[in-house]
Write a protein that binds this DNA or RNA. Sequence first.
DNA 1: GACCAGGCACATC
DNA 2: GATGTGCATGGT
Length: 216
Amino acid sequence: MHRKTLLLNMYGAMLDRLGSSHWYPGDTPFEIAVGVILAQNTNWQNASKAVFNLKNLDLFSAPVLYALPEEDLAEHIRPAGYFRMKASRVKHFLSFLRTACRFDMELLKSQEMEILREKLLQVRGIGPETTDAILLYALDKPSFVVDAYTARILNRHCLMPENVSYPELREYFMEVLDPDIRIFSEFHALLIRVGKTWCKKKAGLCASCPLADFLE
DNA sequence: GACCAGGCACATC
DNA sequence: GATGTGCATGGT
């Protein structure tokens, strides 16, 4: 099967079974971007508690968080796990925002995607997946996000080797799919939902998986 | 109590 | 360039 057909069929199968995902949660581009950092290697339930704390204390704006001492930030985001490290990462991101766009997310959005991607990758604590998630979900740029689930699912279905690199995995999707932020967003969200339910670490292929027919 | 979760930086070989 | 490790809470 042609790669484009294969991917679009996978997408369609997941969407038919699961419905659309309504991602990514957050009221503003800034909230989404910080949410992405807080959700690193953490389930969204825990990350959302940290987001709630910040909103509840009326701290969730870039200038306010920039002025907040890092130790205080760390305490507020404790439920997200890795809280000291994430406080540091959010602070690095805020410093980036201040110099790059004076905390103006619309100004940031006006920059070209690849330029922006390189800049984000330079920020300490913002790796490839966080960069692509911020680009896609916060800044409306068509940058495909791949993650551990994506790798596992494609590997289980014999489409990718087990230790495929992040760039390889991302290019697999980006070369084939048209750059459409709605498809990119939904595709990634669906892969995570499928991964959580049907593609756990210590489990084989499951017949009830929406992707069960896509074993090559 | 073990295992897992929407990563990343850094040390070491 | 590959591999190992620390970071940490909360749900199953």
